[in-house]
Design a binder for these strands. Structure first.
Length: 551
RNA sequence: GGGCACGUAGCUCAGUCCGGAAAGAGCGUCGGACUUCUAAUCCGACGGUCGUGGGUUCAAAUCCCAUCGUGCCCGCCA
């Protein structure tokens, strides 16, 4: 560990930085420190050298299965992510959301929070009223195509697209009739009518069921699907509207109730009640967030950068309503676009996440099969293994590619780039895990039971590569801490890469099971491999990337 | 037009919040390493005015100002 304090102390001490560094080094009594064995200066910099106790404690800590988990904070946090409208198949444009969202939830869980994963279901908006009308109006014969896949959302989205096309291009009188029907569905929902709710649910539940199945492939799973109609039915939206009208910022313009937020640095008015008396997504989301504040200590939302303005309006309005919004944090990401433009469910432009995952698995399978031929290790992978590895690597590569980048960077989707299995991708890190497992299995260590350390003695870590690896292992809990504080799981991805490098160097230079490696060197190195395995397995777990036992 | 983000090697990206050692990886190119715990690996070479111009500082990719380029937003949609 290095420090540059000498630069700042120099002025105070009236000495040049190198001299200041030397004086600080002199003042530190290493004998009083447990984890520091020496302090050296290098010009103006101070370097603290880790002691053998530091190495030994790290090794002990990391051989625990839970290594990297921080102590329980007794603090609950709800992570809302994805929340895609239940209108059709999940496409790649918004695939960043479940991948980043799941990793954010994971990293918070590792950091000791009690995490709930929520998907907020937009089942009260105009889109769903349109969908419901279309589903009830059109027949299979009216649809232009076969479903692209045998699953509900692929089947039903055809009604949605047909309906939207009809509203845009259909004969005027019919469109008017349709609009009236759509309007009546929305009014019904707003009034909390059981019948309207059931009609919409018929569509929502089916489509959402399919979308869940797709997301489960990542896997991104949720503790709760929170429907926005819930906040109409329980009366909280009405209550909220009443409170909003009382605010100083409330204005009634063009028959609609709005909030003028210019005093709070937002030019755009927030409309919270339409002229027809129905609420808007934003209105219900306010009720939703007040509910979150009641139920949880913190609320994190992962959303696209195109919702940034709405996010600011939401926060500002919640404050005007008397809420403390400090517990609310938003993680923003930029949408994935195609070279030819945006992806859209309504227009049917875009690449389905299912297709991307299928292609990833199929390319991974090809890769496994090619490598199978000139494989050194004679562990006889069977069909099942090939299948397992293809899934772990294929899906892992997609997730890793997404989660390892800063969410704010724009991405243009390209097949070959998204499905690159080369170094600095998931397989590179996964391979390290497989190597660890290979060595442990070869040594007869029960992977489930773990390893009995006995007396660890750091003096057997005589190589620089072994020490560097252990130092890298030691950083893991700190990485979890920092990534969770900043809500940036990509920090963990960067770490896995650095870890893999350190491990591979160790692997090259320090044989574990060679005949010339005697006791206790062998045991110490084996413990280091066990520690490495837990570290990389847990780091991958944060990212939601599978850790294969063999590849 | 206004607001917000992004701009680092030919390409894809870390590093920027919280300023400090010669700016790091991978891909690609070139050259090496499988009788050795799995070569989806490793080693080496080549490759950078950190968009541009100012400023602050002992010190700037990092902070401030300006400017250019790209993306997103500015609906009684979500």
């Amino acid at each position: 560990m290095a420090s540059s304090v000498a630069f700042r102390l120099a002025g105070e001490l009236g000495a040049a930085p190198p001299q200041a560094a030397a004086r600080v080094a002199e003042e530190i009594d290493v004998d009083e420190l447990t984890y520091v064995s020496g302090v050296e200066t290098q010009g103006p910099y101070l370097n603290f050298l880790p002691s053998s106790a530091y190495y030994e404690r790290t090794l002990e800590a990391a051989t625990a299965e839970t290594y990297g988990h921080l102590p329980d904070r007794e603090e609950s946090v709800v992570v809302e992510h994805t929340s895609a409208n239940p209108t059709g198949p999940v496409h790649v444009g918004r695939a960043r959301n479940p991948i980043i969202g799941d990793a954010v939830a994971n990293v918070l869980e590792f950091a000791g929070y009690d995490v709930s994963r929520h998907y907020y279901v937009n089942d009260a908006g105009r889109q769903l009223a349109v969908f419901t009308w279309a589903y009830e109006t059109f027949d299979e014969d009216d649809l232009e195509s076969e479903p692209e896949r045998d699953r509900e959302e692929y089947d039903l989205v055809r009604y949605y697209r047909t309906g939207n096309a009809f509203l845009e291009e259909g004969p005027g009188a019919d469109v008017e009739k349709a609009e009236a029907e759509i309007e009546s569905i929305m009014q019904g929902l707003e009034a909390g009518e059981e019948e309207a709710y059931e009609r919409v649910s018929e569509v929502v539940d089916q489509v959402l069921g399919g979308m869940k199945a797709c997301l489960a492939r990542l896997p991104a799973e949720f503790d709760e699907f929170v429907k926005e109609t819930r906040f109409i039915l329980d009366g909280s939206t009405d209550d909220l509207v009443a409170r909003l009208k009382e605010l100083e910022a409330a204005v009634y313009e063009e028959d609609a109730w709005q909030l003028d937020l210019t005093d709070h640095g937002i030019e755009k008015n927030l409309v919270f009640l339409r002229s027809d008396g129905t609420s808007l997504y934003a209105t219900r989301d306010l009720a939703h967030h007040e509910w979150k504040f009641e139920e949880y200590d913190r609320a994190v939302t992962v959303l696209g950068e195109d919702h940034k303005l709405q996010a600011r309006q939401l926060r500002t309005t919640l404050e005007l309503l008397g809420n403390d919004t400090d517990p609310l944090e938003q993680v923003l990401y930029s949408y994935v676009n195609l070279p030819e433009g945006k992806m859209s469910t309504r227009r049917g432009t875009g690449i389905d996440l299912d297709d991307l995952l299928d292609e990833a698995i199929s390319r991974a399978r090809e890769e496994v099969e090619t490598r199978l031929e000139d494989r050194l290790r004679d562990d006889d992978l069977d069909e099942e293994d090939v299948d397992r590895i293809a899934h772990q690597v294929g899906i892992g590569a997609v997730r890793y590619d997404v989660v390892s980048k800063q969410p704010t960077k724009a991405i243009t989707f390209e097949w070959d780039r998204a499905l690159d299995f080369e170094a600095q991708s998931a397989p590179y890190v996964q391979y390290v895990h497989a190597r660890c497992c290979g060595i442990l299995e070869e040594a007869g260590v029960d992977l489930e039971a773990g390893i009995d350390l006995g007396d660890v003695d750091a003096t057997h870590l005589e190589t620089a590569a072994a020490r560097a690896l252990l130092e890298t292992i030691a950083r893991f809990p700190g990485v979890v801490e920092s990534a969770s504080e900043d809500l940036q799981p990509h920090q963990v991805a960067t770490y896995t890469r650095e870890f893999a490098e350190a491990f591979n160097t160790f692997y090259r230079e320090c044989p574990v099971l060679d005949d010339d490696v005697g006791s206790p060197l062998r045991e110490t190195r084996l413990a280091l491999v066990a520690a490495s395995r837990h570290t990389v397995a847990n780091a991958l777990a944060v990212l939601g990337v599978a850790a294969p036992r063999s590849m």
